[in-house]
C-alpha cells in the first residue's frame, strides 16, 4: 500500500492559445490575436528546465491515471501565468489569468476527482485579482491561489487586496518563480545578477523567497490577516534555518521599530508560511534530513513538480527525517489547504 500523498505542485498548461480565447470577451480575444500575443510555452518550466524531446504535456484525460501512486489530491498549478510578472499591460495580464482559470476549471477539474485548482492571478492589479479569487470563493474545486512575484515585496500594501481575499476564503497563496527574476524590469532583482550565466538564476532564486518572507513577517501581514497562509513553491528549503535565525536575531535587536511583531519571527513563519519541496538537486539527503529537523514540523510539503519532476516522491520523502515523512507527504498539505482538498463533493 502506497503512502498517502497530496501533490502540492502539479503543473498544467493550455497547449494552444485557441483554447483560451473562448474564455475572454470577444474584443479581448481579438486583441490577443491582433497583437500576436505569444502564449508562454507550457513545455517550459518558468523556474528553469523544460520537457525533454519526445515527451508531451500531460493531457487531462490521462493525467489522473499517471499521478504518483497513493496520490489523494493534486493541486493544479497553471504555470503559464508566471510570465505575467514581466509584462506591462496589467489589464491584459488579468484577462489572461481569468482565461487560464476557466480553461483549467472546464478541461481539467472534471477529468479526475482528485484534481483541485490553484487560482491563477496576476499580481499587477490586486483589485482585479481579488475579484478573480472571489469568483472561485465558494467553488470546492479551487483550493489555493497561485501567482508570481513582482519587485514589490509581499508585505507592502500593494498586495493587500489579494491577501484579504485569500484570507476571506481561507485559500493559501502559492508563489512560484517566474523565470524573469533578475533579468526583466518589474520582477524581483536577484542580488548581484544581471542577464548572465544560466546557473546564476538557480543559485540565487531562493533570495526572492527570503526577501518576501522577511517582508511579510516584519510588516505584520499575518497580524492583520491571521487566517492567511503563504506557500513558497520552487524556491527550495535548505536555506531556511539560517534565514530564520537571522529573522529572529534582527528582531531581538530592532523590535522597537516593528513592535507589532510580538512573537519571534520564526513563530510567524511556522504558523503562516509553507514550503513546497519539489526538487532536491544535489543537496545530500543526509543534509536535507538534518536541515528539515531544524524546522517546524508543519512547514514542508511535497510537490511533484510534474511534468518537470526531477525527483520521485519516494526520493523526496527519503530525504526527510522519519518523523516528518507522513507530514510532508500528506498531513501538512491537508492542514494547510483544508477540507476543500479532500472533499468528495465536486461541482
Amino acid at each position: 500500500m502506497s503512502e498517502a500523498l497530496i501533490d502540492c505542485e502539479y503543473h498544467v498548461a493550455a497547449p494552444d492559445l485557441q483554447l483560451l480565447l473562448p474564455y475572454m470577451e470577444k474584443s479581448w480575444a481579438a486583441r490577443f490575436v491582433r497583437s500576436r500575443f505569444s502564449l508562454p510555452l507550457g513545455r517550459e518550466h518558468p523556474g528553469g528546465g523544460s520537457l525533454t524531446e519526445g515527451s508531451s504535456l500531460p493531457d487531462p484525460a490521462t493525467a489522473g491515471a499517471a499521478l504518483a501512486a497513493g496520490t489523494r489530491a493534486a493541486l493544479l498549478v497553471p504555470h503559464q501565468v508566471m510570465p505575467v510578472a514581466g509584462w506591462t499591460d496589467t489589464l491584459l495580464c488579468s484577462v489572461y489569468a481569468t482565461a487560464l482559470n476557466r480553461y483549467v476549471r472546464e478541461h481539467w477539474i472534471p477529468a479526475d476527482r482528485r484534481f483541485r485548482m490553484a487560482i491563477a492571478i496576476s499580481p499587477h492589479e490586486p483589485e482585479l485579482a481579488a475579484d478573480e479569487i472571489d469568483r472561485y470563493g465558494e467553488d470546492v474545486s479551487a483550493a489555493a491561489i497561485v501567482m508570481p512575484l513582482l519587485a514589490t515585496h509581499l508585505g507592502q500594501t500593494h498586495y493587500r487586496p489579494i491577501f484579504k481575499a485569500a484570507a476571506r476564503h481561507r485559500l493559501p497563496v502559492i508563489v512560484h518563480p517566474s523565470g524573469r527574476e533578475g533579468t526583466i524590469v518589474g520582477t524581483p532583482v536577484l542580488s548581484g545578477m544581471g542577464p548572465r550565466h544560466a546557473g546564476e538564476y538557480h543559485s540565487l532564486i531562493w533570495q526572492a523567497a527570503v526577501t518576501n518572507i522577511a517582508s511579510l513577517v516584519y510588516d505584520g501581514v499575518f497580524i492583520d490577516l491571521p487566517d492567511l497562509r503563504v506557500v513558497f513553491a520552487g524556491f527550495g528549503f535548505e536555506w531556511l534555518p539560517g534565514v530564520l535565525w537571522h529573522l529572529d536575531m534582527e528582531w531581538r535587536s530592532l523590535r522597537i521599530d516593528i513592535p507589532w511583531v510580538t512573537d519571534p519571527p520564526s513563530v510567524y513563519v511556522a504558523r503562516h508560511i509553507r514550503i513546497v519541496i519539489d526538487d532536491l538537486g544535489l543537496t545530500p539527503p543526509e543534509a536535507s534530513r538534518q536541515i528539515a529537523n531544524m524546522l517546524a514540523e508543519g512547514l514542508l510539503m511535497w510537490g511533484s513538480n510534474s511534468p518537470f519532476a526531477t525527483n520521485s516522491a519516494a526520493e523526496v520523502l527519503d530525504a526527510m527525517p522519519e518523523k516528518l515523512r507522513a507530514k510532508v507527504a500528506f498531513g501538512n498539505a491537508a492542514e494547510t489547504f483544508g477540507s476543500r482538498l479532500l472533499t468528495e463533493a465536486l461541482a
Binding site: 548581484g192 526577501t211 522577511a214 516584519y218 510588516d219 521599530d257 516593528i258
Partner: peptide
C-alpha cells in the same frame, strides 16, 4: 537586495547577506 526596495531597516538588515551571495 532581492526583490527591490526594503521598507524598514530591520528588513534591510536581515537581507544584508544577499549582495555577498550574488
Amino acid at each position: 537586495c532581492a526583490g527591490r526596495v526594503t521598507r524598514s531597516y530591520a528588513e534591510h538588515h536581515v537581507l544584508l547577506s544577499q549582495p555577498g551571495q550574488g
